[in-house]
Design a protein around this nucleic acid. Sequence first.
DNA 1: ATGTCTATTGTTACCAGTAACATTTTGGAG
DNA 2: CTCCAAAATGTTACTGGTAACAATAGACAT
Lengths: 346, 346
Amino acid sequence: MSETADKKKNITIMDVARQAGVSKMTVSRVLNNKELVKASTRERIFDAMKELNFRPNAMARSLAGGQSLYVGLIYANPSYFYLSELLFGAMDACRDRGHHVLVDQAYNISDLTDPAYIEQRFFEMGVHAVIIAPPLSEVSEVVQNIEGAGINLVCIGTKPEGDRLSVRMDDLSASDDLIQYLIDLGHQKIGIVEGPSDHKLASQLRRDGFQRAMDRNNLEVPANYVASGDFTMHSGMVAARQLLATEPRPTAIFASNDDMAIGAINAAYELGLRVPEDVSIAGFDDTQMASSVWPPLTTVRQPIRDMASRAIDLLELKHHGEPIKSLSTTLEYELIVRASSGPPKE
Amino acid sequence: MSETADKKKNITIMDVARQAGVSKMTVSRVLNNKELVKASTRERIFDAMKELNFRPNAMARSLAGGQSLYVGLIYANPSYFYLSELLFGAMDACRDRGHHVLVDQAYNISDLTDPAYIEQRFFEMGVHAVIIAPPLSEVSEVVQNIEGAGINLVCIGTKPEGDRLSVRMDDLSASDDLIQYLIDLGHQKIGIVEGPSDHKLASQLRRDGFQRAMDRNNLEVPANYVASGDFTMHSGMVAARQLLATEPRPTAIFASNDDMAIGAINAAYELGLRVPEDVSIAGFDDTQMASSVWPPLTTVRQPIRDMASRAIDLLELKHHGEPIKSLSTTLEYELIVRASSGPPKE
DNA sequence: ATGTCTATTGTTACCAGTAACATTTTGGAG
DNA sequence: CTCCAAAATGTTACTGGTAACAATAGACAT
């Protein structure tokens, strides 16, 4: 046997240059799509690259050019779905640009409120920029520390503030729309399962949207139509049990996230109620489970992937010192109507 | 305002060397824990590093030394939980070693059965090695293509074969243990919800373990105690409905993964049955939901993180050309008993 | 034919480290 | 007090690219 993988000398830009009969700089230009290379030369270089099966060395490129961005995705959201989506979005956006995503989990928020820790950790990772997602992005201490360490930053899900970059969606309007949809179906007695108070956005804004829609339609929200959970299935189940036990029983329940909505479905079954015939249930997020549960959930699709992609875009612009038109981007949500909601029974 | 972040010249090994009054090579030695530096010099260098707040440049290190491993995590498992766990495990293992994890999603398996695509894609990512997880790792065509491209590889969840590196857990014994536990509780009529046939391991082995335990205890498994799903909650619900409708009704149901087990719980509620009083339900995987659902699921904890960590270890050994004692590692599972299981009613 | 301008291509230095070999100390033995 | 091996440190030449600044070549006007 001859060594297969060991001796295999890497094919470099130099090899390509030699093969194509040009200098390595010209190859580098082709590699970076600079427009100053004659078409025929470009062709020859492409051919050489193909023939030699050349692959540029990402590390060398970023070392030499400072082109490549190492983006840290800092994470403390308990939802695997959220992480995965964020990751996919970031990866897709990084792929073409030759950037990389380094994920780092913040096991506890208190670490990130220590500026020294942040500086240490991020430099060690070698990240040029950082994306942080809720609920971390809502902790101003954390955000300030990261900025203080001189690291570029995009916050996901926060309101614009100062010259901080952010990407978000309009949770308020989204929940408003969702509730309006329920109202249009004929529901008047609608209960809500709120989220925990440390998720400002997902809890407060969604609650506000609910309230806004109800107010606009002159519908009452009695105090016992409001319960709260902590975004877990179980808490949704407990909260929904309570809501479904009130008299008169709500004909629809809006849970502030899908997990709790699924808990609410369970609670309904437990009480012998059918969904959506006896009670309509709606969630928020459009997680994977939302479509796999029975009945599939009516919910709001959060464009998590797009938010991550957009965040990468912003970071790249900033990295290259290009002007950024608007510091905050708001992306579109989508109302997803599925079988868990329907008109109320007479 | 002076520029805060722009002009901040990076602190390099040279700066440290100057400050400590040594050559940069000596600093490099300290950085790599080579034992040929006098203690007093080492001290001075450490002090200088601290004083200057020096952070080594990961890219330069790996370019110059070929030390750092870029590991690709190739992914086609529909479970966010699985991805996240795998990722966390890989990240943790990479962290100290200065390696990096690049995640790549295989949107469809057919891509990976095309050798040209694989070669193209992986080189582009600049990965030195790859980890693949089920169900991808079970497709021999994919595995062979990756090996054919000369890329180091660790398969997660497959049996040892040739000189291929693999990390796995004993699904067969795990499900056997779980069933034995149910039998010890007093159950004799146990139904199973199988997984889909394209997940050999998760479906077949778990099924086999079930059968082995039943056989050993001389318990019958009538054909209508076996239903199958596709690992989604909904399929578990449908399958469980069917099982719970058979006469005599099983007193326990083993679903081959947690999602289907949760679906089974829903089915039980739907039929007005209590869990675990009327029927015990057990899952497999110990996903996040397993503990957040009500009642929390009895299940088997798969050491997904550990498998990923171990995979990184193996890759590092191989990368450095060190001998690997055993090509396949089998990690321990853990039986997790929660409230969804209990003794059968009289 | 000559000069000029622009389009292309080449040179040289550098990014932040490490490998391999060279050199200088250092500590004992003789 | 020498000498020599071992220990400690330094040099030089890379790693695989890019930036900034030449230099050359065509195309066109004079």
